Amino acid sequence: MHVVPLPALADNYIWLMHDDAGQAIVVDPGEAAPVEAALAARSLRLRAILLTHHHSDHIAGAATLRDRHGANVFAPHDERITADHRVGDGDVVALEQPQARFEVLQVSGHTRSHIAYAGEGLLFCGDTLFSLGCGRLFEGTPAQMLASLERLAALPGDLMVCCGHEYTEANGRFARQVDPANAALALRCNEAAEARAHGRPTVPVPLASELACNPFLRTDSSSLADWARRQHAADGRVERFAALRAAKDAFHG
């Protein structure tokens, strides 16, 4: 299976997957035009659309693509999303064209009904997990988001993280403020800066890299615990995570 990040809107990625026979899937099409261009350029047939959550920058192109191509739309149990198939935690999306299989994981926090899809060596995590960051808490609590991130962190480290936005450089600037001695993080930031300087995306990235670099996956580390104490955060895993997320919300570096 081939995977291609399609830049869309201001900083979104729509994810396109296709096999050698020309059968394709897209994830979170916030607009239709980039998908149509990519399908035409590669002579692909769109068979399925996977949606992670209801925000318009992830679903606004889905109806147009569904109508034009007859593709089946898979989405969480959320009345704010139009879908052919509702899927939730523990469900499996098994496709025949292209032949692909994805496990569905409930990852609430950014939104109440957010889901992720894991399979074919890929993790489509929408706005729950970003490279070097995580999503804002629009409809969930710190405890919910921390639990969701822990679920993702427990997946195989060789999964390639396919997130919804190109936020890596900005996330990296914050991450280095809270975890300045992390050598793996410094290397990742340098690699991301070089990629962007040459017009390349910073994702997908192995989940193992995020486990080593992403402060939101490292709240149990001694360095992040030390940081939380300096912020006078209450002692506890959820409290450390909440302090970290609040600091990121206020960060303008």
Rank of each mutant, 00 (worst) to 15 (best):
P7W: 07
A8G: 02
A10S: 08
A10T: 12
M17P: 04
E31P: 05
E36F: 13
A40T: 09
S43G: 01
R45W: 00
L46A: 11
I49V: 14
T64W: 04
D67W: 00
G70M: 04
G70A: 09
F74I: 06
H77R: 15
E79L: 15
A83H: 13
A83M: 10
D84V: 14
V87A: 03
G88I: 07
D91E: 06
V93A: 13
Q97W: 11
F102A: 05
L105I: 12
L105S: 02
T111A: 04
Y117V: 06
E120L: 08
L122D: 03
G126W: 01
G133C: 02
R136G: 12
T141G: 00
L155W: 02
P156E: 00
G157Q: 11
D158I: 00
G164L: 10
G164M: 11
G164T: 03
Y167A: 15
T168K: 04
N171Q: 13
N171E: 13
R173F: 09
A175L: 12
R176K: 13
R176M: 14
R176N: 02
V178M: 00
D179E: 14
P180H: 06
A181I: 01
A186R: 11
E191K: 05
E191F: 10
A195P: 09
R196P: 03
H198K: 13
R200Q: 15
P201R: 08
P201G: 10
P206N: 07
P206C: 01
A208T: 04
A212M: 13
N214L: 12
F216I: 11
L217M: 14
S221T: 15
S222D: 13
L224S: 03
D226Y: 14
W227P: 07
R230C: 11
D235A: 13
G236M: 04
R237T: 08
L244M: 12
L244D: 13
L244K: 07
A246D: 09
K248T: 02
H252A: 11
